[in-house]
Simulated assay, not measured.
Amino acid sequence: MSRLKDTGFAYYDLKKQLQYEDLEKDLQQLTLAFDHLPIDEYAPHLNRYRRYARAIIMPKTYDIQWLPESTVNKKSYYEYFQGSFNPEYTGEYRRFPSLKKETMNNRLLEKIIRFDFKETFWMREDALMPFHAGVHFVKLQVDDEGEEAVSSPNNLHQDGEPFTFAHLIKRHNIQGGWNAISHPANRGKMPEDINKADMKASFYLEEPLESYGVYDPLVTHYVSKVKTGEKQGPGERCAILIDFQPTVIANPDEVRSMRGNTTEMVFV
Score class of each variant (00 low, 15 high):
residue 118 K to M: 14
residue 1 M to Q: 03
residue 246 P to T: 12
residue 164 T to D: 08
residue 169 I to L: 13
residue 111 K to G: 06
residue 124 R to W: 13
residue 51 R to W: 12
residue 124 R to L: 15
residue 122 W to E: 06
residue 212 Y to W: 12
residue 129 M to S: 06
residue 95 R to W: 14
residue 176 G to D: 12
residue 226 V to D: 08
residue 115 F to Q: 02
residue 143 D to G: 06
residue 165 F to R: 01
residue 204 Y to E: 00
residue 43 A to F: 14
residue 242 I to L: 02
residue 248 V to T: 07
residue 43 A to I: 14
residue 254 E to P: 03
residue 154 N to I: 04
residue 193 D to I: 02
residue 189 K to S: 10
residue 16 K to A: 11
residue 212 Y to E: 03
residue 240 I to T: 10
residue 180 A to F: 14
residue 168 L to Q: 11
residue 142 V to S: 06
residue 105 N to M: 12
residue 12 Y to R: 02
residue 210 E to W: 01
residue 29 Q to E: 15
residue 121 F to A: 01
residue 215 Y to V: 00
residue 15 K to V: 12
residue 15 K to C: 05
residue 74 K to C: 09
residue 64 I to G: 04
residue 119 E to C: 01
residue 237 R to H: 14
residue 1 M to V: 11
residue 174 I to Y: 07
residue 114 R to I: 15
residue 170 K to F: 09
residue 59 P to V: 07
residue 148 E to G: 00
residue 123 M to S: 13
residue 7 T to A: 11
residue 150 V to P: 00
residue 77 Y to R: 03
residue 236 E to N: 10
residue 232 Q to A: 12
residue 227 K to S: 05
residue 9 F to S: 12
residue 86 N to F: 01
residue 264 E to M: 05
residue 40 D to R: 07
residue 169 I to S: 06
residue 80 Y to E: 03
residue 184 P to G: 08
residue 221 H to Q: 04
residue 111 K to Y: 12
residue 136 H to M: 09
residue 261 N to M: 09
residue 110 E to C: 08
residue 16 K to P: 07
residue 211 S to E: 11
residue 10 A to V: 04
residue 34 F to P: 11
residue 184 P to M: 04
residue 88 E to I: 07
residue 56 I to E: 15
residue 229 G to N: 03
residue 187 R to Y: 04
residue 62 Y to L: 13
residue 1 M to W: 10
residue 63 D to W: 14
residue 74 K to R: 08
residue 51 R to G: 03
residue 135 V to T: 00
residue 226 V to A: 06
residue 56 I to W: 14
residue 149 A to E: 11
residue 173 N to I: 09
residue 48 R to S: 12
